[in-house]
């Protein structure tokens, strides 16, 4: 057998095994660590599938934000809720439910997949040719960016809206509380952050810029920046009080807002929303990507912090982006 095929098979087996273990784990901390490992291997799987754009996003999200988000969430749960899985003996029906569920699910999913694969064999190899034919007029040199921000820009616009909605929901639930000890920050940690933060910002800029020609773009760059913001919060930086009001909300909403304005402007200009004039397409895509990166970074970091900024001015709180001034 070819090594590549064995590699793919082993990767697949580990992924399925990991998914099973992390879902079945009664120890929530173990489940979190397994999920971090799952994210790593999933990025490898995307690479093997020839989708480096998705792998970049998975790497930035999985390594940067998800692990931290789950660890913070686990800390919030408190020790009583963490051990809520009782060891009481199961009833007969409870014992029966898992095998029945698995026994029904796996054959049906396999059947659906088999039917899908059977259909795939007769179709064309995707839309690569069509996209490449129209790449010249899209305003972007990279197929995925052209699809995301021109051909199917609607989907991306709504995705920005979903992110904003998610944060509005989080903010409506609770007020942000300090996540970490602010007093005992070791010099090594401070040194690490001072070395890493500029690097993260530079690489985020690089990933954003190369989205025009190669895998990369706003979401990957924004996720990377949000990990940088998170690191800054971890070593004790916080957003100054005067930035936590309108300016923070503007930063969170600007990505969606500018995108929506462009949709409205193109609707008036050409009769179709998000149908860019050909000579402006490149500049518009760049503008959308720039503001979207800032918003995505702020949105993801604010989601980890969890909760709206405190209204009471006397309580100091660790609040999201300390990097807004630097951006």
């Amino acid at each position: 057998m070819e090594p590549a095929l064995i590699f793919d098979l082993v990767l697949l087996l580990i992924l399925i095994g990991l998914a099973w273990l992390l879902l079945a784990s009664t120890d929530l901390f173990r489940a979190v660590v397994l999920f971090i490992a799952f994210g790593l291997l999933l990025a490898l799987a995307w690479v093997r599938l020839g989708a480096p754009d998705v792998a970049l996003a998975e790497a930035a999200i999985g390594a940067g934000i998800t692990g931290a988000l789950l660890l913070v969430g686990l800390g919030r749960l408190g020790s009583t809720e963490r051990c809520r899985f009782s060891r009481a003996p199961l009833t007969f029906l409870q014992r029966l439910s898992a095998p029945v569920l698995v026994g029904v699910m796996i054959p049906s999913i396999s059947l659906i997949l088999l039917l899908e694969v059977h259909q795939l064999a007769g179709t064309t190899p995707g839309r690569q040719g069509l996209i490449n034919a129209f790449l010249d007029v899209s305003g972007s040199g990279h197929g995925v960016t052209a699809v995301l921000l021109n051909f199917r820009a609607w989907d991306t616009l709504l995705e920005k809206g979903v992110l904003l909605l998610a944060l509005i929901t989080i903010w409506s639930l609770d007020q942000a509380r300090p996540l970490f000890h602010q007093e005992d920050i070791s010099p090594q940690l401070m040194g690490l952050a001072r070395l890493l933060l500029p690097l993260v910002i530079v690489v985020a800029g690089f990933v954003l810029w190369q989205g025009d020609q190669a895998p990369g773009g706003a979401f990957q760059s924004g996720a990377l920046l949000s990990a940088g913001i998170l690191l800054a919060i971890l070593v004790g930086y916080s957003l100054p009080q005067r930035w936590q009001g309108l300016s923070l909300r503007l930063l969170l909403a600007i990505g969606f807002g500018v995108f929506l304005l462009i949709a409205a402007a193109t609707l008036l200009y050409s009769g179709y929303p998000l149908q860019y004039p050909e000579h402006l397409a490149g500049s518009l895509i760049l503008l959308i990507e720039l503001v979207a990166t800032a918003s995505i970074a702020a949105l993801l970091a604010a989601a980890v912090v969890g909760g709206h900024p405190p209204d009471d001015l006397s309580t100091p709180a660790a609040k999201a982006p300390s990097t807004s001034g630097r951006r």
Partner: peptide
């Protein structure tokens, strides 16, 4: 980003 989860 390897350090972020560990620092958290």
């Amino acid at each position: 980003l390897a350090a972020v989860a560990a620092v958290t």
